[in-house]
């Protein structure tokens, strides 16, 4: 019994060393050498300034930008240091109330648009940081952004299509538009 206890304690120490120190530091070392961009957060750098991460969404609600998914993080939307979802159940009245408010905001910003709103544009993402919207959600916003930016809808549609990433290897995941990248490109064209 005594002997098993001693083995338990020593083996625990050895395993902490191997799996808790050596293994994570080894992965860190290799990752920092081979994939430094990805390992440090896939940051978008431009002229020495860091404009965000390719993988983390940002809040947009000005009419001249494409909007992303609603974000449930606190105290700011798209808070990259406290990911969170709404956790509203499907029958929760608050869920429907929030969706209603979002619909009103979208309609207010573009009263003439009669297309039905794509679901991802009114529902909270799982992370509160989702960098993407569907292609449908981006195309829905084209008339508003085109008007605000004085670009033709055709040019903007073409731009949305260009920024639509297909399924990975043509098979995996869903087609999507990275909202931050699209908005950065809009600002560059200005």
């Amino acid at each position: 019994m005594h002997r098993q206890l001693r083995s338990a304690l020593i083996l625990l120490g050895v395993m902490i060393l191997f799996t808790g120190i050596i293994y994570p530091f080894l992965v860190t070392l290799i990752a920092q050498v081979i994939f430094p961009h990805q390992a440090n957060g896939s940051l978008i750098e431009s002229e020495g300034k860091c404009l965000g991460s390719e993988l983390i969404g940002q809040q947009f609600d000005r009419e001249g930008y494409f909007w992303g998914r609603p974000s449930a993080t606190q105290p700011l939307p798209y808070n990259g240091s406290a990911s969170s979802a709404s956790n509203y159940g499907p029958s929760n009245e608050e869920l429907l109330g929030n969706i209603q408010k979002r619909i009103e905001a979208l309609k207010r910003s573009d009263p003439g648009n009669t297309v039905s709103i794509p679901v991802d544009l009114v529902t909270y993402s799982a992370s509160g940081l989702d960098p993407h919207i569907s292609q449908a959600a981006a195309l829905y916003q084209v008339p508003r952004v085109a008007r605000q930016r004085h670009i033709s809808e055709g040019v903007l549609q073409e731009m949305v299509n260009r920024f639509t990433e297909g399924r990975q290897f043509g098979v995996l995941g869903e087609p999507r538009v990275n909202v931050l990248r699209l908005n950065l490109a809009l600002d560059e064209n200005k």
């Binding site: 869920l95 991802d120 529902t123 993402s125 799982a126 919207i133 869903e174 087609p175 999507r176």
Partner: peptide
């Protein structure tokens, strides 16, 4: 152009 369905609490990708 979209996955559709119950997207509350899901990620687009």
């Amino acid at each position: 152009a979209q996955a559709g369905g119950n997207m509350e609490g899901k990620e687009v990708r």
